[in-house]
Design a binder for these strands. Sequence first.
DNA 1: TAGATTGTTAATCGATTAACAATC
DNA 2: TAGATTGTTAATCGATTAACAATC
Lengths: 207, 207
Amino acid sequence: MKGTIPRATVKRLPLYLQVLEDLPPAERTVSSGQLARAAGVKAANVRKDLSFLGSNGVRGVGYDAAQLRNQIARKLGRMDACPVAIIGAGNLGQALSGYPGFIDRGFEVAGLFDVDASKVGATYYGIVVESVDGLEKAIEQRGVSIGIITTVPAAAQDIADRLAAAGIRSILNFAAVTLEVPEGVEVRRVDLSTELQILSYYLHESA
Amino acid sequence: MKGTIPRATVKRLPLYLQVLEDLPPAERTVSSGQLARAAGVKAANVRKDLSFLGSNGVRGVGYDAAQLRNQIARKLGRMDACPVAIIGAGNLGQALSGYPGFIDRGFEVAGLFDVDASKVGATYYGIVVESVDGLEKAIEQRGVSIGIITTVPAAAQDIADRLAAAGIRSILNFAAVTLEVPEGVEVRRVDLSTELQILSYYLHESA
DNA sequence: TAGATTGTTAATCGATTAACAATC
DNA sequence: TAGATTGTTAATCGATTAACAATC
């Protein structure tokens, strides 16, 4: 079961899941065309993607919405609440602490950490900022499995090292640096100004 | 000059640019290997990418850092400040208003809008929240060229329609919906919980 | 049966990479 | 010359898509 689903497909599964969860309860069935429109791909691509889950559509009818939703959710590991730690209680870290999309999708903010003593103790959306000194202990005790880095760029690599050493295998990095991590640790990078620059290119290119 | 650079390359140009800007001034020259390490790709890939800018490396030596920086910045349209409008003054919109990475990269928050009258007039990082009623006028008067949507999902499509009608061709969408936009409008979607779900998949898959 | 939609194949497309001649 | 690194080709890889038989 390891590595069987192409990365391009994995990226789209959450989008399909969202469509299924937003579906009116009256619609018991969904077609590849519907999913395709919502995810911005072609219908054939959707069918190919779903074939990796073990195909279970019905020809001439479509896919059973409830069954497909469960199947995708299971693949994405959404069986039980997944505790995440946010390191860096700046604006972005604070905003993420209260992000409703996390709870909706089965993630739970199990800790919000900062190096700045003047921030420790503050509360955002019910989450109390803790000193980053206690990071490793918190990870172990609370079963944290995903780390979200929202520190300044200069601090990000050190935090990544500590996360990896503490056994974290999945990191979401908002800092504008490329992190070096040991084999087996998966990093996804979200760089807001990079996104803007990409848009900026297409802006000028099409003008 | 239209569409000549592959999308995969465009995505990496900002990463190269960052490396070049973080380079110690003493280093006048940079190799494809250095850039590759920082961007997480192979050196051959970097050389191929840079060849689309019109190759100007020196065999046996590398690339002139200053020249390459200018070349990439020009391609990305970084000649003058690019005004952006943020629609949705919730946590994320507030955080983005103060995001230093935008200024660093030549973007300027020219307006922060919200539909909620109780938010209008509040100030975040020097930006005063305005009513979304004035969106179109502000876009025209301030020469806004990129819209950032940080509204609730239900409001996002309406805002996208208004942005497109007002002549905006580039949208950065943080709302968890797929936007339908006219031909010629470029949308990039950043979905934070989708990123977590992708990580969650690899978490379980490798276990 | 007629209409709809899947599952899968084969073709195509785009991106990555190894390899190496060119050249500083 | 010896060492380094580019620019480019050709091979490979992975993802998308059109097309259509299968089947509800």
